[in-house]
């Protein structure tokens, strides 16, 4: 049995990442889950959050904006609506987005507005978390 996992992250815009890694931890809809080599086939919906993976001694982080994950034959495929590595993230913009979203949540009247603002806030927080790790 192979002792490595092949991780691939694709979004509608581009293929973000395709690497051989040791362990993947992804933000599942029902909680975070980890994937080690030899994992059984698994399909899962992802929420907005942080995806981590370890390569040798280094740990790397990617912000994932929701999507789906599939584990099959030591291969993890992430189909994300959007995904950004730390170097892609614009810290200032993300901070501004967080403030804007917070303001909107405070002001929002109806449910749709609120849900939308909350989603934006989650995305901003995920981005900031990744950016600040670096």
């Amino acid at each position: 049995m192979a002792d490595k996992i092949f991780l691939e992250i694709v979004t509608p815009e581009k293929k973000v990442l395709s690497e051989t890694v040791d362990i993947v931890v992804a933000p599942g809809e029902m909680g975070e889950f980890g994937v080690l080599p030899g994992h059984i086939p698994f399909l899962c919906k992802l929420k907005v959050g942080e995806l981590r993976f370890r390569q040798g001694a280094s740990m790397r982080h990617v912000a994932v904006m929701g999507g789906y994950a599939e584990v099959l034959n030591n291969q993890v495929t992430i189909l994300a609506t959007a995904a950004e590595t730390a170097s892609d993230i614009d810290l200032i913009r993300a901070k501004a987005a967080r403030e804007r979203a917070e303001r909107r949540i405070a002001e929002s009247r109806d449910k749709v507005d609120f849900a939308r603002a909350q989603a934006a806030l989650q995305r901003a927080i995920a981005r900031l978390k990744i950016a600040e790790r670096q």
């Binding site: 509608p12 599942g28 029902m30 086939p41 698994f42 399909l43 899962c44 919906k45 789906y68």
Partner: peptide, 24 residues
């Protein structure tokens, strides 16, 4: 031959994926 584990559930995943498939 593969038995998949689904999360949240098979039905929920498919219901969620199908519209996205049209977009794609």
């Amino acid at each position: 031959g593969f038995e998949y584990l689904f999360e949240p559930s098979h039905e929920a995943l498919l219901t969620d994926l199908l519209p996205n498939y049209i977009y794609v």
